[in-house]
């Protein structure tokens, strides 16, 4: 009898635990949805007054007068992101090909932890470095060759900082993709008399193209959302940049700089929430697509 009670108790305990865990799992699944809905609801007040399109395409930002044009911030984000990808991608491709196809194991043993460390450095430290090194370098060394004056606080500075920040992410994904490509495929190309480089160029890169694209999309979405580091070096002037030496004002910086401060202005917090919602929606989509592509690749090559 005691035994039966005991086992009944055990089974109940098992059931309770199972349901609790299921609930938490569902919560973690729903979290993205909750965030999206929450941000959207908060941004409805402004969407009732202005059309989404007029908000996105408007280039005047005067919250006091009720003018909320997001275009300068969107352009700021695009410039910074574009520059960072242009810098990071070639570096990452070359480095990850080198590390996965050529480098001696000892080299890998040294380089991998260093890239991990690079990934772990907090954004704010990148920002400090940007102010200490990158900004003065741009205003003193690079900009004078091209424009009359630049403070150095520019989309270029933001792009450089962001590039270094997304490099570890791209490299780690690329290396995983290259590692997932079966050795037989390389052997097949080599046995036809191709050089290592030809094999990389015609077979490896071709086979990993979907993965590379997915990695870029992930990197773009990471760059989109990066806040503090970019905020610290971009200059934050709400006007669309026209050259890489102009200041810019990316969306996340807008939110971070103003939120919680000027809530007395009508629609201001709603406008900022809309900015957060736009960021969320774009990044959610980008992540969804690239993660699905990457999981497919992983499954396809897993034996």
């Amino acid at each position: 009898m005691a035994l039966r009670n005991n086992s009944a108790f055990r089974i109940i305990k098992d059931k309770v635990a199972r349901n609790l865990m299921l609930a938490l799992t569902l919560f973690s699944l729903a979290l993205a949805l909750i965030i999206g809905v929450g941000l959207y609801m908060k941004s409805t007040p402004i969407l009732e007054q202005h059309s989404l399109w007029s908000l996105l395409s408007g280039d005047v930002w005067r919250p006091f007068k009720g003018q909320f044009g997001f275009l300068p911030f969107i352009m700021g984000t695009l410039w910074v992101t574009g520059i960072s990808i242009l810098i990071a991608l070639p570096l990452c491709l070359l480095t990850s090909i080198y590390l996965s196809e050529y480098a001696h194991p000892y080299v890998k043993k040294v380089v991998f932890p260093m890239i991990d460390i690079l990934a772990g450095i907090p954004p704010v430290v990148y920002g400090v470095w940007g102010i200490l090194v990158v900004v003065p370098f741009i205003s003193d060394k690079i900009a004078p060759h091209f424009v009359e004056y630049s403070s150095g606080y520019s989309v270029l500075a933001g792009g450089i900082i962001l590039a270094i920040m997304i490099i570890p992410l791209i490299i780690s994904i690329l290396i995983e993709i290259f590692a997932s490509i079966p050795k037989e495929l390389r052997d097949a190309s080599l046995s036809l008399g191709a050089t290592n480089w030809q094999t990389i160029k015609f077979v490896l890169l071709r086979k990993s193209l979907p993965g590379i694209v997915a990695a870029i999309v992930l990197a773009i979405s990471r760059a989109f959302g990066e806040t503090i580091a970019v905020l610290m070096v971009c200059g934050n002037i709400p006007a669309s940049p026209h050259s890489i030496f102009d200041s810019g004002y990316p969306l996340p910086a807008l939110i971070a700089n103003n939120y919680g401060e000027m809530l007395s202005i009508p629609l201001y917090d709603s406008a900022l929430m809309l900015a957060a919602f736009i960021l969320f929606a774009i990044i959610f989509l980008f992540n969804l697509i690239s993660r699905i592509v990457l999981t497919r690749i992983e499954k396809k090559f897993a034996l």
Binding site: D187, A188, G193, A194, V203
Partner: peptide, 20 residues
């Protein structure tokens, strides 16, 4: 090596078509 490999065609255990 490339010259050596060119002289020999390899057929592996399972077919490995190149991605093209």
């Amino acid at each position: 090596i490339m010259h050596i490999r060119k002289k020999m065609g390899l057929l592996s255990q399972r077919p490995v078509p190149l991605p093209m």
